[in-house]
Nucleic acid binder design. Structure first.
Lengths: 215, 215
DNA sequence: CCGCAAAGTGAACAGTCGTTCAGGCGGGGT
DNA sequence: ACCCCGCCTGAACGACTGTTCACTTTGCGG
């Protein structure tokens, strides 16, 4: 207790950082770093330095770097699944309205939470295999929503999806559309020519045209 | 020279491996490894072991791991640029035919050369900044082809692209379409329900619908 | 048959990585 | 007043990285 005078706040308060608990600060820093530079090249030291801590402190909150990634991806993915389900559920019974609502929710979210979307979509492969399962399941579930909407619209006669050689492949169609909606997070920049809502409407319009929605 | 008797063909012939020069073998192995596991986690030792050599031998053919990546990406990207330009040039003067030809060439290539496309699209960011320039330029050039086709079709009155709030954003439209066409390489599997040519036609049809091509 | 250049080997180098751990710190309960 | 416990520090560990290098092996032209 000799040199206590120097730098009163030398070491940080244990409960909060930047006004929030350290776990949240770590999560936020990790999101940013992973999105900017990619999981394998971001070191534990980088993440912790970005929130004013040192390497070792990570392991008071997460078992490993791998668990940290899994944690932030699953939470993002789970909420995406929830948001899209909710959008569809609240859009009435017309498949056209339901598809449009889905696209809007999906695209707005991928514009607004670019960082989170980017990490969730790009960094899965670094997780060790047993942890990938539930994320893949959630992705499949979201894709099944789209396939379901296409099927329903086709049966009700309000969609006329493209055919190749007389056959329709709604799964391929859904994959193509989802690729489009997902990767908006790779290049959309707020403050550009289109706002989030305008992007969402553009993509919804493209989707309705692609599936041959009748006026 | 005491134990020469063991393993006559211990070390391989210097000029060829698998019937082709070692540089090509290294390129092929690197493509495969980078596509499967990603540049930063693939070690030089991994690549060389995959073509039956040891670490040090890489540096007889490439200055660094970074140069190897740059080499295989630029060659892929340059040929993609060439192929798409050629497809458009050989499709007459109707913007609809030109767009369809572009999509077919682009999608077929991304189905057939999935490994190459995957590496070229996903691993750029690991290159050091001065090497990224020309690849970005090539991507921009390809995007400009699409924007050019959309503009031409709009002026000639054969396209009716979606509007948001009375404005059209052809660049965003082109980005959205390119995202769709590019990422087919992430999930297409040969032997599935659709062949490469069928995929190409499906995507071309979707694109024509999305841009509002008139019959 | 020799020698030479091209090509491959594998040990070695200097860093860096994720993770562990002994110790320091401060605030809350008794 | 005390001690405890959650949080943090920073040195240390062993494994692994890209790259270098002295040395060997190879096939070919003379």
């Amino acid at each position: 207790m000799s040199k206590r005078k120097i730098a009163v706040v030398e070491s940080a308060p244990p409960v909060e950082r930047d006004g929030r608990p350290p776990v949240e600060a770590i999560r936020a820093a990790a999101f940013q770093q992973f999105a900017e530079r990619g999981y394998p090249v971001v070191t534990v030291r980088d993440i912790m330095k970005a929130c004013g801590l040192t390497q070792g402190a990570l392991y008071n909150h997460f078992k490993s770097k791998d668990e940290l990634l899994h944690d932030i991806i699953t939470s993002t993915q789970a909420e995406l699944e929830r948001v899209t389900q909710q959008a569809v559920a609240g859009a009435g019974s017309d498949p056209r309205a339901k598809l449009a609502a889905f696209v809007r929710a999906y695209v707005v979210r991928h514009c607004r939470l670019r960082v989170e979307a980017l990490v969730a979509n790009r960094e899965i492969s670094w997780l060790d295999p047993d942890r990938i399962g539930d994320i893949r399941r959630s992705r499949r579930a979201i894709r099944e929503i789209v396939v379901g909407l296409l099927t329903e619209g086709l049966e009700k006669g309000v969609f006329d999806p493209p055919q190749v050689d007389g056959k329709r492949d709604l799964k391929a169609l859904a994959m193509a559309l989802l690729d489009q909606w997902t990767h908006v997070s790779m290049w959309y920049a707020p403050g550009g020519r289109l706002s989030e809502e305008q992007m969402a409407r553009l993509y919804a319009e493209m989707a309705l045209r692609a599936v041959g929605a009748k006026a």
